[in-house]
């Protein structure tokens, strides 16, 4: 702790110490531009502006991560805009107040004059900043923070920050299945060759895991794997309505009228034609989806209402890198 404090103080002293004019060394020349006078007020201003820019850029990252702030978009815009504004102000202050200017009175000759070129190079070199290191450090901080702010939205290419809600679903044992008007479905409402959209009672219908697609399959056509065998109720099966490929709503049901010479029943996503087989637990039979459709166990209550028998067998929603490897919470 003490050592860190010493290091910090010595660092600040090193940065802020006044440089004494040194005698010219063997390889050095006389300055063309006089060394810049110390200008602590403006130097401090520039440094503070750059730090303010860095702080705003960091604020952008923080706002981005805290996903559910009110006026989220406006705050993002404000923080990034202020950051750019502060950095611009710092550069203006540096240019106008801290860089020594030296005007050459003669017009530049048209032809090349090596000596004069050298002179110009020297003018540029000598017109250096005072407190060059401190300003550079502040500029680096501001630039780094701004870069971080600009790169942060890359995280939007897939969920990276708020993952908790992906594993929570509104389905518990006994949750009723309701239609879009909130009316509970009865098992007798579900007819063969038709498909129905159901939601968890009392849940947010916009939430990914809430919506289901319900179908009743002809007797004898269910071929569920052993671990899913108890998921169907009276031939009715329920799957998540959200395609595991890109998260579209599965709104197509292929329901053959005459099984022997027509395609088998299938749930089809209209976005990229991922096709799932409702008879065997929702396996992918065609299209880009990488994994099977999550299936929800069903129960029929004594009054005939359809209820969930538990949670999905798989995580709901589109599959991003690694995010959906865990099972949904029950």
């Amino acid at each position: 702790m003490g050592r860190a404090k010493d290091a910090l103080i010595s660092g600040i002293v090193l940065l802020l110490r006044r440089r004494k004019p040194r005698p010219l060394g063997p390889g050095e020349r006389e300055r063309v531009v006089p060394p810049a006078p110390d200008n602590p007020g403006w130097e401090l201003t520039a440094v503070l502006l750059l730090l303010a820019g860095a702080a705003c850029a960091i604020a952008f990252v923080v706002v981005y991560v805290l996903d559910r702030l009110p006026a989220h978009t406006q705050l993002l815009g404000l923080s990034l805009g202020l950051s750019l504004l502060f950095i611009a102000a710092a550069l203006i202050v540096t240019a106008h107040r801290l860089i020594v200017t030296e005007e050459l009175e003669d017009d530049y000759p048209v032809l090349e004059h090596p000596e004069e070129q050298e002179l110009i190079v020297q003018v540029v070199e000598d017109s250096g900043l005072t407190r060059r290191r401190l300003l550079k450090l502040a500029l680096l901080t501001a630039g780094g923070a701004l870069t971080a702010a600009v790169l942060t939205p890359i995280a939007s290419l897939g969920p990276a920050v708020d993952l908790v809600r992906f594993y929570a679903t509104p389905w518990r044992r006994g949750t009723r299945l309701v239609d879009e008007h909130g009316k509970p479905y009865k098992a007798s409402d579900i007819e063969e060759d038709n498909f129905y959209t159901a939601f968890a009672e009392g849940s947010d219908k916009e939430a990914l895991p809430s919506s289901l697609v319900l179908v009743r399959l002809p007797k004898g056509s269910l071929k569920l794997p052993r671990e899913l065998a108890h998921y169907a109720a009276e031939g009715i099966v329920a799957y998540s309505k959200i395609c595991t490929h890109a998260g579209c709503a599965i709104s197509l049901y292929r329901a053959p009228l005459f099984q022997p010479d027509e395609p088998t029943p299938a749930l089809v996503c209209p976005c990229h034609y991922s096709t799932f087989n409702p008879a065997d637990g929702g396996t992918v039979t065609f299209g880009p989806a990488g994994r099977k459709l999550p299936m929800l166990p069903l129960l029929v209550a004594p009054n005939g209402e359809l209820r969930a028998g538990g949670n999905f067998d798989q995580p709901v929603g589109p599959s991003w890198w690694g995010v959906r490897e865990r099972k949904p919470r029950t």
Partner: peptide, 14 residues
């Protein structure tokens, strides 16, 4: 009402 080929069938109840 029929649901020809692979079209779903919609009853009067639905």
């Amino acid at each position: 009402r029929i649901g020809p080929y692979v079209m779903p069938t919609f009853s009067k109840k639905d």
